[in-house]
Design a binder for these strands. Structure first.
Length: 544
RNA sequence: GCCCCCUUAGCUCAGUAGGAUAGAGCACAGGAUUCCUAAUCCUGGUGUCAGAGGUUCGAAUCCUCUAGGGGGCACCA
């Protein structure tokens, strides 16, 4: 297919004007054409010429292109394009004949991106906030993959350090409780009921053998068991949510395999670490952070930051062109620190981008549900999935910008589930499939034969064709901005156009030639819905 | 005290790299099906884009300040 942006850019370049980026937009008002650019006005200052004059030069060149009916200069210097219908038909034809070529644009050129997300502590089940990170991370990965990036999805397991020790001790305390032995439940311990279940499992498996040994001796067993079990549960939750990872990186393994040690040694040799007050510090201020940070405490143990340095060092060594960390917004203060690490490792800090996902407030009927992981009072991702469904849950996350605070009202999500926008899109998809089933019954085959498309001249048909022709532009924008939620809104608009069309024109049962053309259009819509839903990780049902 | 995010219609939210007259869904009212799925469609209106300055030919969008909400500032993770 013809790349619209490219074609226009080339035309502008050919009259000797250089632009870093061509701004293209779909005008709100129909009289302003199908596509519009303010580029002449942007250039006016730089070239010290009247915008309309510049526009006129550009337009002269653009009229050589074969895809526009009209190219007009309007207002202070907008250039408005109106597509030829033949051009639109070509687009649809291209889409039907080779969907993936049409829908995927190679922007990444094989660049390797690693996306780390969720990375929940294996000390309890996933909650709704993790679900948001999972939905965003997974859809972003899908998006970038389709844009020609080589994407690796990674979950970082915090299975070393205090939190998992606390998990083990919490289980141990419950274990002792079951045996009616004295053992104080740890302060800040995990109080959820799942801890008791884990204690019971150990009791069933190993009996009372740990009772007389004390936690110090039993710690390894309890920690390892707890982490393994929690991790299994987390994996199961994610799988049921439809989110899959390529790699699970254990923090503990970073120590066991000497990665942290090697990394710190290297930093030490390059004098980026220094000793003070009996502790080892990272010279973070030399790389833009506001204070230096401890990596080895005066008692000789590592801080969490130490393994994070090692982890990012390891990521860099693995040769990614770009690293994306998706973090909860409560970690934002950590960004300068980790960026400092990237710089200290001799990388441009643009190599790492941290995408913050804002907090999710869980409400039920307008009332906030208080949550505390330690106290075991929280609503899990699984509960929400079971109550409102995985598709709906994901969709709610993906109809918002990640950096907006989100009130997730379970009651509303459930009440609206029958008229939820996700069903609206899926229904459009199911309707098309239904048409196809009917048409097969009537012996019409070769749905993909893009014949007689030139007969499509209804307003609704032209509207749909235009929308489909804009997919590549929208896709490009979503990739550039790393914003999968743009796909969501596009799909809603496309579904809306289709439903409207469906209600005003019949596909089957009219003139066979027109039927064939309309089937082809449906097939094009179907391809895009399928593609978009698949990026979002939402199912595309054949029937509803 | 310092730092980050948010504030757009009654509600939930979009607004694409600063562009032309501000957009959906929900809710509310009325209407559409002898025919491809009514989880649909059609018709109704609503805005101090939190406020005040600034930059610009042009600001919901960029900058500064103010107010409100959320989050974060450990030799915790």
């Amino acid at each position: 297919m013809i790349d619209i942006r490219n074609a226009i850019e080339e035309s502008i370049k050919s009259i000797g004007i250089e632009i870093p980026f061509l701004e293209l937009e779909v005008p709100r008002v129909a009289e302003h054409g199908d596509l519009s650019t303010p580029v002449a006005m942007t250039l006016a200052r730089q070239l010290k010429r009247h915008p309309r004059e510049i526009a006129s030069d550009i337009v002269k060149k653009l009229s050589e292109l074969d895809c526009f009916d009209k190219v007009e200069i309007a207002g202070p210097g907008f250039i408005n394009f109106t597509f030829k219908r033949d051009f639109l038909i070509d687009q649809i034809e291209a889409l039907i004949k080779a969907p993936s070529e049409y829908l995927h644009k190679d922007i990444g050129k094989g660049r390797k991106i690693q996306i780390e997300f969720v990375s929940a502590n294996p000390t309890g089940p996933l909650h709704l906030g993790h679900g948001r990170g999972a939905a965003v991370g997974a859809s972003l990965s899908n998006l970038l993959q389709r844009a020609g990036f080589e994407v690796e999805k990674e979950f970082y397991i915090n299975d070393a350090g205090r939190q998992v020790l606390l998990l083990g001790e919490s289980i141990f305390a419950r274990y002792m409780e079951m045996l009616r032995k004295e053992y104080a439940f740890p302060e800040d311990g995990y109080q959820g009921d799942y801890i008791k279940d884990l204690a019971q499992e150990i009791l069933d498996r190993d009996g009372e053998i740990y009772a007389d040994r004390g936690f110090d001796e039993a710690a390894e067993v309890f920690v390892r068991f707890g982490v393994r079990r929690m991790l299994e549960e987390i994996k199961r939750d994610l799988e049921d949510f439809g989110v899959f990872f390529d790699r699970w990186q254990s923090e503990k393994a970073l120590y066991d395999e000497g990665i942290v040690e090697r990394c710190l040694k290297e930093l030490k040799e390059r004098e980026m670490l220094y000793e003070k007050d009996g502790a080892m510090w990272f010279r973070a201020t030399a790389f833009g952070d506001d204070k230096d940070r401890v990596v080895i405490k005066s008692d000789g143990s590592y801080t969490y930051f130490a393994s994070d340095i090692g982890y990012h060092w390891f990521k860099v060594q693995r040769g990614f062109d770009e690293l994306i960390n998706i973090w909860g917004a409560d970690h934002h203060g950590y960004i300068p620190r980790i960026k400092a690490v990237i710089r200290a490792l001799g990388q441009s800090d643009e190599k790492l981008s941290v995408l913050l996902v804002q907090m999710v407030n869980l409400l039920r009927g307008g009332k906030p549900i208080q949550m505390s992981k330690r106290k075991g009072e929280f609503v899990t991702l699984r509960e929400v999935m079971e109550e409102v469904g995985a598709d709906t849950t994901k969709f709610i996350f993906l109809t918002r910008r990640p950096d907006s605070h989100l009130d997730f009202d379970i009651e509303i999500a459930k009440r609206e589930s029958s008229e939820n926008p996700v069903y609206y899109i899926q229904y459009a998809y199911a309707r098309i499939n239904s048409i196809f089933r009917k048409s097969r019954e009537q012996g019409i085959s070769n749905l993909k034969d893009a014949t007689h498309l030139n007969l499509l001249d209804k307003t609704e048909e032209i509207g749909i064709m235009k929308k489909l022709a804009f997919y590549p532009l929208m896709f490009e924008g979503a990739v550039r901005a790393r914003e999968p939620h743009r796909i969501t809104f596009y799909l809603q608009e496309l579904a809306s156009l289709f439903h409207s069309y469906y209600n005003s024109h019949r596909v089957l049962g009219t003139d066979p030639v027109i039927t064939s053309a309309r089937l082809a259009l449906c097939s094009a819509v179907k391809e895009v819905l399928d593609e978009g839903l698949s990026i979002l990780g939402v199912s595309a049902p054949e029937r509803m």
